[in-house]
Design a protein around this nucleic acid. Structure first.
Lengths: 228, 228
DNA sequence: ATGTGCTCTGAGAACGCCCTGAGAGATTGT
DNA sequence: ACAATCTCTCAGGGCGTTCTCAGAGCACAT
């Protein structure tokens, strides 16, 4: 269930939006002032933020600005009573994803919210979930991998590499991308390490009859296919 | 340089927007009617589409609907003279990313455009968009190229050259431009290398019946046509 | 027809990508 | 403490890729 943060200083607006959006199947959290909103938003745990500009403590503009500065890219829908074009342009340039002018119709609001959530959904795919590609099963919770029922024992690093590849079926990942995804930001290892680990994975997969799963795309990187 | 498709039936609007957005550093292409717009947009080679709803041939709604049905997810900014909330909600539910009501201020338009381009930029990793030109498919995520379903195996450099050309359909690219786009800043290669790689590409494309796709424009450079 | 560039192509050398076995540290389990 | 495992580097070999060179082919103007 998508999580939405509603920021407005009027209690009536908060409860009205909260009720309406909950009815639309969203998980709604509210905040009444800037600092509270910023603290909540910085967790990055929201899928969308409805942000009134006129709020106490810290204006909506500032909240948005801080968020983007901190690298939080949650979509933000600004809400304002003013409809001056200058404000609108400023808000969008600060990194907002849309603008609503009070009084707005609830239908338009819901449509905007849905549009932003839909795009978000389409771009993020499923994350952190159990993967299934044909006969291959990859479960990040239990760190278990199996091919057509037969279990495959993997070391943590081997698992990380396979998971990175399997979560993007048919997509070619370069060695640098794999270093980023399976090794993390520090990048302590060289590209050859990736080659070595792909080799380990292949050997283990081969043993259960899935040797062809992990393909080399010469000059580009590696790929696991949904087809097998 | 981000590419924008401007769709409007009024020539005045087209030139005004074209001029203004070009000044903002965008590469602008225009279309005056629905079918033309759809054909251009389906190539997937644009970063943003400004789409008037009232256009001849095929309404903006329909163009948008078809685009989304075909799996093209280029951001679309709808433009309409009407400001009825029903229309706005409908448009957003069809998969639009924003809505502008005529008459709109150019400042607000630019702000919206920049907001959408910025988000796009942030979300798309290094791999670019998937391109479709008639029978040709070029997918940077999987590094796969195909002509009417038949796959074409390309080396990294060959792929880079084809991708550079295909992302600017019908545009002639000089050898120097191709060196910049497909070789990168270092420019370690000579212009003859471009000729050689165009030759490689032609040979491989010929093998699947797409020999005529990559044309030479003598004295200027090379071009791939949307028409084939 | 002839000349002058521009374009294409085959040959081949240099290069770098990819795989693998061996093994050195680090870490974990007993 | 000892063994087992894990992580990663190194060196070497095979081979595909990249790019240059030289010369032939082609378009266009005089």
């Amino acid at each position: 269930m998508p999580r939405v943060l509603v920021v407005d200083d009027e209690a009536g607006v908060r409860t009205a939006l909260g009720r309406g959006l909950t009815a639309e199947g969203l998980d709604v959290v509210t905040a009444a002032d800037g600092p509270t909103a910023l603290r909540a938003a910085l967790t990055g745990s929201f899928d969308l933020i409805l942000l009134d500009i006129i709020i106490p403590g810290l204006s909506g503009y500032r909240v948005l600005e801080q968020l983007r500065n901190e690298g939080v890219d949650t979509p933000v829908l600004l809400i304002s009573a003013k409809d001056g074009e200058v404000d609108q342009a400023d808000g969008l340039d600060l990194g907002a994803d849309g603008y609503l002018v009070k009084p707005f119709s609830f239908m338009v609001l819901v449509a905007q919210v849905r549009a932003l959530l839909r795009r978000r959904e389409a771009e993020r795919g499923q994350s952190g979930r159990r993967l299934r590609l044909g006969e291959l099963m990859v479960d990040p919770a239990t760190k278990q991998v199996s091919w057509s029922g037969r279990p495959v024992e993997l070391s943590p690093r081997e698992f990380a590499v396979l998971y990175a590849l399997a979560s993007r079926p048919d997509t070619v990942l370069s060695k640098d991308e794999l270093l980023r995804l399976a090794w993390g930001g520090e990048q302590a290892a060289s590209r050859n390490a990736v080659e070595v680990y792909v080799g380990y994975l292949r050997r283990k997969l081969q043993a259960v009859g899935a040797g062809h799963l992990l393909r080399t795309v010469r000059g580009h990187g590696y790929r696991v296919g949904a087809s097998g």
